[in-house]
Design a protein around this nucleic acid. Structure first.
Lengths: 137, 137
DNA sequence: TTTGACTTTGGAGTTAACTCTAAGGTTTAT
DNA sequence: ATAAACCTTAGAGTTAACTCCAAAGTCAAA
């Protein structure tokens, strides 16, 4: 059980951010010390790592909250609902990866064809790199 | 040359957003009509498509501006600088793709092992799916 | 035992990226 | 020729996700 400053430092976020995440229901500390200090477990740290990773790749906190909320408690979610929801998220992530790769290709093309090649530096902008890509279709 | 409403509709953004992008130097219309209406070319549309894609995968408008600004005009940027900058962006995108794939794996594991399999629904949350992944390391 | 580094809360302030409003000019369809 | 659907600007308002602040309690080291 570590205190808020420790987990913040380990994962490179501010203590303010952690308290904010608690308010938003994204990450609640596992307990409190006698004096009221928040105490976090390794589990909490794993969860925070997931949150940060998901945020990095463009999920909003609300989407992350939905991901974290996936649980099958008979009352609220059926297995079918969970399957359905994760399927949707999987396609969404796959779509993002495709888009990422498109951007990566543009950048690589730019990096390769711009400056220093045999041909003159015609393709020295993302835009002309994009044009070349379009031409290739 | 199409007007602002047309390009907005085609790419699914609002006209307000387009005017905002112009203010921010992200996308300026290629010209104006007699009466002062913004007029956009197919080029502009391609550029907007790039902007939207980059935004979707988590680039900020400022980062996108930097990407769009890559140009080798002798005064301002040397070829070396451009190469350097694009290299950095390439690693950044590659890192993001790696993180995306990690998230994708969590989701797939969750989808596969949760509910409906032979084993009971133990892994019915992202968090337990993450734990399994960690165990696998 | 007191200094300094940590923590608490509530609430205000900030930034990016829109989004909306008002007051007006332009174009197109009837 | 006039209504409906478009466009203009300037500027105010909104939302998400922090970030900062004040006033106070806690804890470890010198």
């Amino acid at each position: 059980m570590v205190r808020i400053g420790e987990i913040a430092k380990r994962l490179g976020v501010s203590t303010d951010t952690l308290r904010y995440y608690e308010k938003q229901g994204i990450l609640t500390s596992s307990g409190r010390s006698e004096s009221g200090y928040r105490l976090y477990t390794e589990q909490d740290i794993a969860q925070l790592a997931f949150v940060i990773r998901a945020k990095d790749v463009g999920f909003t906190l609300n989407e992350i909250k939905e991901l974290l909320a996936i649980k099958v408690d008979k009352q609220s979610h059926s297995c079918e609902q969970v399957k359905q929801f994760t399927s949707e998220k999987i396609s969404q992530v796959e779509r993002k990866i495709t888009e990422m790769n498109a951007i990566l290709n543009s950048l690589k093309l730019l990096h390769k064809s711009c400056c220093g090649g045999d041909e003159p530096a015609i393709h020295c902008s993302i835009l002309s790199a994009l044009e070349v890509q379009n031409d290739a279709n």
